[in-house]
Design a protein around this nucleic acid. Sequence first.
DNA 1: CGGATATTTCTGTCTTTACAGAAATTGAGA
DNA 2: TCTCAATTTCTGTAAAGACAGAAATATCCG
Lengths: 179, 179
Amino acid sequence: MKDLPPFAQHFILHWGEMGTKWGINRTVAQIHALLFLSDRPLHAEEICEQLGVARSNVSNSLKELQNWGIVKVVHLPGDRRDHFESIQDVYELFRVIAAERKKREIDPTLVRLRACANEAGATDNPADAHAKEQLESLLGFFELVSDFYTKMDRLPTKSAIQAIRMGDKIAKSIGALMK
Amino acid sequence: MKDLPPFAQHFILHWGEMGTKWGINRTVAQIHALLFLSDRPLHAEEICEQLGVARSNVSNSLKELQNWGIVKVVHLPGDRRDHFESIQDVYELFRVIAAERKKREIDPTLVRLRACANEAGATDNPADAHAKEQLESLLGFFELVSDFYTKMDRLPTKSAIQAIRMGDKIAKSIGALMK
DNA sequence: CGGATATTTCTGTCTTTACAGAAATTGAGA
DNA sequence: TCTCAATTTCTGTAAAGACAGAAATATCCG
């Protein structure tokens, strides 16, 4: 990371480390961090040089970031190379990540949980009653999360932020009304 | 997975697969799934037999689940072996997971982002202005998430669920009032 | 206290992932 | 059209992670 200021280097290293906790390869996350901080699109060779990784690794990692939808190719006039840029707006970035995680994790889990709950419901073995109940409860939770996601995704960013800021106060008021 | 009904097996396999997307080892996640479905605490040998994994691997994985706070040791009268049980309540389970993720990921990221933003703020190199802005914006986002977590964690489960169910409607109303 | 049981730690190996560099392919421009 | 640059794919290898089984340690109970 030769030409980067220390604060950028620290951020990139940290982001890479967080990536591994989220099931994302360190280099992929570091490349994303670099593009996120950059004020202009970067081409692959620049990324190689800045992060000190092989060209082929950069190529594969960029493909993955594109699959996540958070990085896209742009072409600059007078330059035949692909340049890459990250979504710059933080809220948009996390919105896209959430959408992709819902697609890759939540939706398949919902499908699987519904199937398992149905299978469990079709059996009358008392030994399975608890497991059935657990699956149904977990299904309810994932449905709640999925609903929450869907609704929030429809809101403009400002409204979503408001909901998040005030959600607990409103819940308290609802609680008070219900008493 | 010899003695488990097919629906349980399907769930356990799926949960293990999801684990890998969340940065958790497959076997660890599968052991958790087994304990989550079980209507009684299981001892290590039972887990080995049910999942077909080595005793030492079970031992290490249970340690990790305990570190996450979602599995605990219980001792049964007349049986010297450690038995293990998962948190059974889904909302409590995800509350504990969220707390641990905040501690392991959000909090260190906040610390790091604050440090980076300060470093970036102490430099007046115009080339760094964009990166500084990006870091500050990301810091704002993580602070929002951290706040949201803290507030929701204080609510009883029912109120938290209400907030999640109604949050978008209220955000729309706030938006209408602001116009 | 000694033997048996239970658990943990260690070690070696297997598997998977990550990675660099070579080779192949694609696309742009003269 | 040909050459060269850019990119992707492939291959081999290194590293990391996962895992089983042996060895060591700890604990219980007769």
